[in-house]
Design a protein around this nucleic acid. Structure first.
Lengths: 164, 164
DNA sequence: CTTATCAGTCTCCTAAAGAGACTTTATGGT
DNA sequence: ACCATAAAGTCTCTTTAGGAGACTGATAAG
């Protein structure tokens, strides 16, 4: 059996993970974010196998998260972020914040300085509307009209099971 | 060969992914966040295999992200979030924001309402110090004194390679 | 004209994931 | 007491994914 794919789940987390949730994928993107754009550079920096790196770059390009940019003459490409890829930045930032606190016990190996205010910062998640910090318990999730009817029914049923 | 583990990388992203980056792990946590705390509930809701669910729950408990809470008499347990687990909320929220926009084209299957301001919200990442929105290009990352000397050297060398 | 480098393929082998049968412990009904 | 049901795992079998490293083809450098 193939590994279960999440693409028929009516859930943005599942959809996102179906694309960037494979082993190595977010680490590759981290490197591209930092400025490591080439096959050999990624190989050296990550210690990933050639086969898997090839495969991941292919799917990231196919998904429109990375784009190939030619360099030198001939068919050599660098891998650069598209807008879709760049907007995965917040995911990486929240992973950093969690790892800094819970794995490195607030002694992070890398310090982030915010250029605008010139202070050492830790990314924080806030409500887009009122600007206050939010976490899960501050939010209520409800199926929207964009979720198919049958999925809405299942969602409600599961919710009831949990609370009973 | 075992799958490469990331735990000797001096990077919070790698450390975080080494714990929660396996297939299924973040989806399981999503379900627990929503209130699905039991083995059978997770099985039904996710369509995961028993073996993998058992394995993931084990490592999440071992890592202190979930804790077992007895229910009924006898050795039956629910799985609940610890503080360490709860603080993975921001990671899930940024994945939701990305999936809502880039997979569902701004027609998200689930709408999040912020209890405090009673508005439909989309999580946003800001600087902890000045409160302004941040993304990767607004930040400078530099090795801190907590990164071992040799790792700092490698980091600087890779940086130079990228810019040359 | 040889050597080196980069970006991939290709092959071989091990580990992880999926399907589903089986086990253990506890409860519910008659 | 007896049988059926259910929850929460285990176990086995098979397929797929990942790791190590040799090999290829195209360009550049000496």
């Amino acid at each position: 059996m193939k590994r279960t794919d999440f693409s028929d789940m009516h859930c943005s987390i599942a959809q996102a993970l179906n694309i960037v949730g494979e082993w190595w994928t977010l680490l590759i993107l981290r490197d591209v974010f930092i400025g490591n754009h080439r096959f050999s550079g990624l190989l050296d920096s990550l210690g990933i196998s050639r086969k898997v790196l090839t495969d991941r770059l292919e799917t990231l390009v196919a998904e429109g998260i990375l784009k190939q940019v030619p360099y030198d003459t001939g068919n050599r490409f660098e891998y650069h972020l598209t807008q879709k890829g760049y907007e995965l930045g917040p995911v990486l930032l929240t992973l950093i914040a969690w790892g800094d606190k819970w794995v490195f016990k607030n002694q992070p190996p890398i310090e982030l300085t915010h250029k605008a205010c010139n202070q050492i910062t830790s990314p924080q998640v806030v409500c887009s509307e009122c600007g206050e910090p939010v976490s899960f318990r501050d939010l209520i999730g409800e199926p929207s009209r964009h979720m198919p009817e049958d999925a809405q029914q299942r969602w409600k049923k599961l919710k009831e099971d949990h609370t009973s």
